[in-house]
């Protein structure tokens, strides 16, 4: 029963902090690094920060993960998020080579994930 209460309190804390972050982003965008003056910059600038929030959640799992497999999952997900980030940057800056980076990143991330999982599989047989 006590454990249950703790869980609910942790959930509430997480929900409140996430909502506070989102409201902060929506009301007042953080200082800008990119080229200003294109349409939709308001919405897409906020979109960039929401994607960065997701990337930080994945980084938390990389730092905390109890086993190696957790870290590999988080690295894979981080790669896919970065492809999305490249797509949004393509619209805000109007330069199409950001998507070249995205395609290359997706290819490389897929191959490195396969290599990591082969490594995991082999380690079990050695021990």
């Amino acid at each position: 029963m006590k454990n249950e209460g703790k869980k609910i309190i942790r959930w509430l804390a997480g929900a409140v902090s996430l909502t506070a972050f989102l409201v902060l982003i929506v009301i007042r965008p953080l200082p800008f690094l990119f080229y200003q003056g294109l349409p939709h910059l308001g919405f897409l600038g906020r979109a960039l920060y929401i994607l960065l929030l997701g990337c930080f959640l994945a980084l938390y799992r990389i730092a905390r993960g109890p086993t190696g497999a957790d870290r590999i999952v988080a690295i894979d997900i981080l790669g896919i998020m970065i492809v999305g980030l490249c797509a949004v940057l393509t619209i805000t800056t109007g330069r199409s080579w950001y998507l070249d980076i995205g395609i290359a990143w997706a290819l490389q991330s897929f191959i490195s994930t396969l290599a990591f999982s082969k490594y995991l599989e082999g380690r079990g047989f050695d021990e």
């Binding site: 190696g68 497999a69 999952v73 994930t113 599989e121 380690r123 047989f125």
Partner: peptide, 11 residues
């Protein structure tokens, strides 16, 4: 691939 590797490595 990750699921298979994790299961074989004993997670």
């Amino acid at each position: 691939a990750i699921a298979r590797g994790a299961h074989r490595s004993g997670v």
